[in-house]
């Protein structure tokens, strides 16, 4: 779910843009040159993942993966989210250019939080990694929808209904994201554990 142009009030649009510029600047400073390939990979994969639809009963949902981005990139996650969203907005019109700041806050802050959480919880065993992965996948999605609802609410009471419905609709998606993150983390732990460092 992305916020499109023209929804949020001007103050929020500009405020979230300023916050995004600041957070990106911090991210740029914290990202070392040699981890650039990793950031580029996750950004592109984050983008590609949004094209993958999974069936859910009669409809289908697509993944958004803020949780996995946080797990894989930690403090660099915000740059990856901003770039991924910028590309999605420019190529597909998912979310608008003026809403880029708000969308980045909405997915980037949960990604940063989840990245920190994963580091605390992951432990050394496969089991602890798997549980932390699932939790991060779930929290990443549900927190970002929470941010979405909160941002919509800044547009006034009129938008409360839309926010609530988006939140309820995202519950099944969060569970799917949790399961996917769980399996992906297990896979990476077995195949290329250095990606989870």
């Amino acid at each position: 779910m992305h916020i499109s142009d023209g929804v949020l009030p001007v103050s929020i649009t500009i405020g979230t843009f300023a916050a995004t510029i600041a957070l990106t600047a911090v991210g740029v400073r914290k990202t070392k040159d040699e981890s650039l390939p990793k950031v580029a990979v996750v950004t592109s994969a984050f983008f590609v993942a949004s094209l993958i639809h999974l069936p859910l009963g009669p409809t289908s949902v697509h993944l958004s993966l803020p949780g996995l981005v946080g797990v894989l990139l930690g403090p660099s996650a915000y740059i990856s989210i901003v770039l991924g969203l910028a590309l999605q907005s420019l190529l597909f019109q998912f979310g608008g250019i003026t809403a880029l700041g708000a969308n980045s806050i909405m997915m980037g802050i949960p990604a940063l939080m989840v990245g920190w959480l994963f580091k605390q919880l992951k432990g050394t065993t496969l089991k602890s990694h798997a549980i932390a992965g699932a939790l991060c996948g779930f929290l990443g999605t549900i927190l970002s929808v929470g941010f979405l609802a909160a941002l919509l609410y800044t547009g006034g009471e009129d938008f409360l209904g839309v926010g609530k419905i988006a939140f309820v609709a995202s519950l099944p998606v969060s569970i799917i994201e949790a399961i996917i993150a769980n399996f992906t983390v297990i896979f990476l732990f077995k195949v290329k554990p250095e990606l989870l460092k």
Binding site: P55, I180, V191
Partner: peptide, 28 residues
């Protein structure tokens, strides 16, 4: 074939993991 079940999610989770690994190796 994609269906609404755990096996599909398991496969897609591995698919995503493999995509990460192979893309990462290539990018490196």
């Amino acid at each position: 074939r994609q269906k609404t079940n755990l096996a599909t999610l398991h496969t897609m989770g591995n698919f995503l993991g493999m995509l990460f690994v192979s893309s990462f190796n290539r990018t490196q």
